[in-house]
Each structure stands twice: as C-alpha cells, then as structure tokens.
Amino acid sequence: MQDSPPSGPLVVGIDVGGTKTRLRAVTGVDVVADHVRATSGWRPHEPAAAADRLAALVREVLPPGVLPSAVAVGAHACETPPQCARLRVALRERLGVPVRVVGDAELLVPAAGLDKGVGLVAGTGSVAVGTLPDGTVVQVGGWGAVLGDEGGGAGLVREAARAVWAAHDRGEEPDALALGLLDSFGVPEVPALGAALESATDVSAEWGRHAPVVFTAAAEGSALAAAVIGDAARALAALVAGLAARGVPVDDVVVAGGTVLGRPALYDAFSAALADALPGARPRPLTAPPVEGAVALARSLL
C-alpha cells in the first residue's frame, strides 16, 4: 500500500458481490488501497442510490485529495445492459471520470488474464456470462433462489429440501440429509421444513448458509445428497451449454464462487458434466480475486 498520493494515473476497480464488496485502487503496479466490507442495502435497480453508495465508498477509501482517473464496477444483480448503463451514467456524474459498469460475473474472464471466455459463478447463487463475437454480452441463469440459481448454495438447499420431502412422501425414514437439514433449520420433523424455508426474509442468504449440510450428508453416505450434488453439477454445465447454443465461444470457462470452488465434490462433478456436454470446454478455477477483473476493465478506459 502507498502512504503518499500516487504520482501516475490511478484506476479503481470495485467488485460488488452478493455478500461482500471489494475496492482496489492501483497506480502502475502499486496498490494504493484494498478495502473489503459487507454488501448491504445494494439496489442496482435504483441507480441514483447505488451510485451514491459507490461514490461515497471511493471517496472514503482513497487517500485524502486523491481522485481516480477511471473506475470500473462489477455489480451484483446488475442483470441487463440498460440497467448497468443507467448506473454507469449516474456514477460518472458523481465522480466526473470515465466509468464502466458490468455484471459481477463479467469480472471473471479479465481477472483470469483472458480476453475471451465464459465466467461461471456458483456461490450463494449461480450465473454464467459470455460474449458473442460481435461483443454482445449474454447471460444465462442468475434468476434467484426461488426460481433458479441451480448449483449455488441456496439452490442446493432448495433442491435438498425437495428431495427430502419426496422421500418423506414415499414413506422413507429420514436419512443423513434429512436429519442434517432438520438440525440446521432447528425444526423437529420433515414437514416443518417448508415453513422454515418460507419464513426467510433474505431467501438467498438465509437458504444458502445451510448448504454445507448437503455436502456433509453426501460424505456420510446419503444417496439423496449425492443426487442433489450431481444434479447441481449438471445444471451448472447446462448454463455453459446454454451460452454455447447462443454462439458464445466457450473454450475457457473461468469458475468462481465459494460453493463450487470450496467443495471438490461439486467442482469435480461439474468438470465431468462439462466434459460430457462440451468436450472442448476447459474449466479454469479462478485464483485471482474478481476485483482484479474490475481493475483490468478500469485500465482499459484510460
């Protein structure tokens, strides 16, 4: 970190994720600031309020009197180009510098040091993003825990609950998956899981925190949990296949997100499913922080 103001152009990259926000400011090869905080109150569909938050973050984190030369933001839940464009305009008005705003999954490919490829995120939610040869961005998935996000933590919990309910309806005794969910949600019996899930005020976050139960149950021999993980892996591969079907080059698939990268059972199953669906696609676990992709996009604005 630099203690004195930078002498060259300073670029700022911001990764606004579902759970945390990271800002990195760089001049040349020197990191001027690297700041992480929890994401709260983030509403990209309200561009003025979202831009106010981002501008305040930039001014708070940078050294006194230091202004950026360019800013790029990867914004969670910024789901369409017009939505991202409205936020870009609002943020540029507040900062007075070139700004680029993309969905947070679009940070993965540049963060990996690539010019093209697919970004696949499976954290609390899931989404895949790629670019057509003409530069058009295409997104598949990312529809939230209630309707989609298969392969993300919240989606895994939803499907695990469905599997446990189906087993209950067949008259089967609770297995390791059912017992794990009952303990995690603090309810006494399988039918009570429905009310527990429906009581969530933040569905993605509150469901997603129970995802470790699925992997623990699979390790303990639960066939239901193993099937849920296998289905999730195939669903993630299907996101990439959906991009390929729309003409997106999928040679390199940059994979990020704590659920898929933190759980070898899911990542290995995804890799196998991807090889079956698209033999030419290469999965690449992201080793750099996604904010590096935002920094790279900010540099491209200079």
Rank of each mutant, 00 (worst) to 15 (best):
P98G: 09
G148E: 08
L108F: 14
A294M: 12
D202I: 10
A218T: 14
L91E: 09
V295N: 02
L57G: 08
V240S: 11
R299N: 06
L54P: 06
V146I: 13
A51V: 15
S4A: 15
L286K: 00
P191S: 08
A25E: 04
L261K: 02
A298R: 01
Q2C: 06
A38R: 12
G152W: 01
A160I: 03
L239I: 03
A211P: 04
A237T: 00
V157P: 05
P283A: 14
P285T: 10
W207E: 00
G125H: 12
L62D: 02
L107K: 11
V254G: 10
V32M: 08
G152C: 00
A241C: 06
G65C: 10
G152P: 04
G258Q: 12
L182M: 08
F185T: 05
A161D: 01
W143Q: 10
V118N: 06
C84Y: 14
A55R: 11
V250Q: 07
A49N: 02
R284N: 10
V253A: 12
Q2L: 13
P133R: 00
V29N: 05
F185N: 09
L224D: 13
L286W: 04
G119A: 08
D183Y: 04
G257E: 06
E60Q: 08
P279L: 15
A269P: 04
R92G: 11
D52R: 05
V250W: 05
G141M: 00
T124S: 12
V190Q: 03
A178G: 03
A219I: 14
V66K: 09
S40W: 01
A269K: 01
V12R: 04
S4K: 09
A233V: 00
L224T: 08
G186W: 12
D183P: 03
G171L: 11
V295Q: 01
G113A: 06
D175G: 10
H45I: 11
G8R: 13
L91I: 10
G96P: 05
G171I: 07
T201A: 14
G262Q: 08
V121N: 05
P82R: 06
T80H: 05
I229W: 01
T287D: 10
A49Y: 09
G153D: 05
